[in-house]
């Protein structure tokens, strides 16, 4: 099922939480929804899962509008809300059974589905505990289990890995990847590495608007800019080397990183590379290179650049 979000706008008082957002997610795609806190991720996800009514615009899931056929959409969506609300006073099995019944899963299939979920989400050891007795990581698994129990076509996960320890994060990511092979998944996060690890496509949203829509690769390219090198040159006077480097045609600017160790940061002109020129320079002056590292812009920096306005 495709998800089509058309000109979605939602106001909370005078503030626009989501401002004219449009995008489309194809069936089988894993979309990472990224943005700083309060950017509008959760609001958009709530609108897709039919919890809130948008002020303007519409969301269509598999051709059905959230305004006209929420009951059909709800049946096909598995939703893990932010902060993972659960009935704390129930035990895992009872809770999953309740959710299964609500989804109208036939009675004879329910025990099987529950066992499947317990196995897939790794809840075997805990299955008779009350939800309130579980650690946060296990509660998160129960949250995933309730979202998956009716085998939905679409999975919407709002910050699925918050509060988990690194091992659990890896496990949940693996799980999402596995599920993502068959289903459409939208997951939100403010951790870039996570989205990069699990998603086919990234959508960055800031102040209620979409800033970037593309793959991690596109994102890098878009913000790549100029070549930056970390360079160490020995065998000459620091100041001479500095002057010589500045004289190179392709070099835009040179900064000292460490004068004693003779480390520099070289920024090349747009779409130029200075590696060969530096090498030639060293040969001419009998310098030698002690270090040469291209500095790749991290996704984190790109993210900050795009969302810090």
């Amino acid at each position: 099922m495709d998800i089509v979000v058309e000109h979605l706008t939602k106001r909370y008082g005078p503030q626009k939480a989501v401002d004219n957002v449009s995008f489309r997610v194809k069936a089988g795609e894993v979309l990472g929804f990224l943005g700083p806190n309060g950017a509008g991720k959760t609001t958009t996800m709530k609108a897709i899962s039919c919890y809130i009514n948008p002020d303007e615009g519409d969301v269509k899931v598999g051709g059905y509008s959230i305004k006209e056929h929420p009951e059909i959409i709800k049946k096909n969506i598995g939703y893990l809300p932010e902060n993972n609300p659960l009935y704390q006073d129930m035990n895992i099995i009872d809770f999953l059974e309740f959710i299964a019944k609500i989804h109208g899963i036939p009675k004879y299939l329910i025990p099987e589905r529950i066992l499947d979920m317990v196995r897939i989400c790794g809840l075997e050891g805990e299955k008779h505990k009350l939800i309130s007795e579980l650690s946060k990581g296990y509660q998160q698994r129960v949250g995933l289990a309730q979202a998956l129990i009716h085998d939905p076509e679409i999975l919407i996960l709002d910050e699925p890995t918050t509060g988990l320890d690194p091992n659990q994060i890896v496990e949940i990511r693996e799980l999402i990847k596995r599920i993502g092979k068959e289903k459409t998944v939208i997951l939100s996060s403010h951790i870039l590495a996570e989205v990069e690890a699990t998603c086919d496509r990234i959508l960055i949203i800031n102040n209620g608007r979409i800033v970037v829509d593309g793959t991690a690769e596109d994102l890098r390219k878009q913000a790549a800019g100029n070549e930056i090198l970390k360079l160490g040159i020995q065998g000459g006077d620091v100041n001479d080397i500095f002057e010589n480097l500045l004289d190179l045609e392709t070099v835009d600017s040179v900064d000292f990183i460490d004068i004693d160790k003779q480390l520099f940061e070289i920024q090349s002109l747009k779409e130029e590379t200075s590696v060969k020129a530096i090498f030639d320079l060293c040969v001419q002056n009998n310098y030698y290179i002690s270090e040469l590292t291209p500095t790749e812009k991290k996704l984190e920096d790109i993210f900050r650049q795009l969302t810090l306005h």
Binding site: E71, P85, I102
Partner: peptide
């Protein structure tokens, strides 16, 4: 508890 959201996003 937030469970209202859980319930109302079910059918």
């Amino acid at each position: 508890a937030g469970t209202l959201e859980l319930l109302l996003t079910k059918p």
